[in-house]
Design a protein around this nucleic acid. Structure first.
Length: 287
DNA sequence: TCCTATGTTGTATG
DNA sequence: ACATACAACATAGG
């Protein structure tokens, strides 16, 4: 589930524990989510500490703890990536975690839970006075001033042979964009997902840039606040339904693997530039 | 039984 | 060194 807005929503799910003491840490140390962390160190540091703050950047979250086993003047920094099936929740105490709940922070009146059945998620941990190394050198947030049309243009130029769908999924430039957001962005910008980075005209670049920002903001304003659905006129509501209909054209949506992921688009709506149409048809005729 | 899944990464190839 | 494509990871659900 978790893309930009879902991650922001899940970050807030641990807010009930803010300022509270972690009485005990329970975790499944052998699970894959701890492949880049030292589970024993997490237990020692966080037991007795207080949750002080939390942050989200793209699909990555960061939780800051103070006190307890964390050295004085340091913070314990818990990084969480939700992978494909990760979720955070706060549960009432007492709580008996199930076998997919791999990290559980017990407090007096609530329990903070990280659940991830498919184990593509990841936990990082470090103690530092300031933000940890794994939180440094993050790409500019899509909604920040540093995410510019020129940056987008340069990035597309370097990925001239890749489909736009695959480009938008690259976290190094589009932190937080995932499969549904990429489809939504291309649909709103009226760009074909198989169009190559090098085929985008100036006008299309502007449309793409604006769509990236608008979809990100719109998702945060809905999903990110309370898990409510984005507006009905978005592709979102239609893209996974069998026999889904494009709200713009009334014609059936198409699903096909592009850029390694299942992609949904509206053929008559997401037109391609003449050059792209020509080269694609020529290639099809060749077989 | 077979297929799919809102993600990332290691590896092979050009 | 850089860009590209794809298998692999682990599990549940339709």
């Amino acid at each position: 589930m978790p893309e930009l807005a879902e991650v922001e929503y899940f970050r807030k799910q641990w807010d009930p524990g803010m300022g509270k003491v972690v009485k005990a840490v329970k975790l499944h140390a052998e699970k894959r989510i701890f492949r880049d962390a030292d589970p024993g160190r997490i237990i020692r540091a966080l037991t007795g500490s207080k949750l002080k703050a939390s942050y989200a950047h793209g699909k990555q979250m960061l939780f800051e703890f103070r006190g307890g086993g964390v050295p004085r003047a340091f913070s314990g920094w818990l990084g969480i990536h939700l992978g494909m099936t990760g979720k955070l929740s706060t549960e009432p105490t007492p709580y008996a975690p199930d076998n997919h709940e791999h990290l559980v922070l017990e407090m007096a009146k609530q329990v903070l839970v990280f659940r991830d059945p498919r184990l593509f998620g990841k936990v990082l941990f470090d103690c530092e006075p300031e933000f940890p190394g794994f939180w440094a050198n993050l790409p500019p947030s899509i909604l920040s001033d540093a995410f510019t049309r020129d940056e987008l243009k340069a990035f597309l130029a370097r990925r001239s042979k890749r489909p736009l769908k695959a480009i938008l999924l690259m976290q190094e430039r589009f932190p937080g964009i995932g499969n549904w957001m990429a489809d939504e962005i291309l649909w709103q910008a009226r760009l074909h997902p198989a169009m190559r980075g090098g085929e985008v005209s100036g006008k299309q670049l502007t449309a793409l840039y604006q769509s990236i920002r608008q979809v990100s903001q719109g998702a945060l304003d809905t999903v990110g606040v309370d898990w409510s659905d984005p507006p009905d006129h978005w592709l979102f509501a239609h893209r996974w339904k069998d026999g889904g209909i494009c709200p713009k054209t009334g014609e059936p949506l198409v699903r096909e693997e592009i850029g390694g992921r299942t992609t949904c688009w509206s053929p008559a709506w997401q037109k391609s530039p003449q050059l792209f149409l020509f080269t694609k048809r020529a290639g099809e005729r060749g077989h």
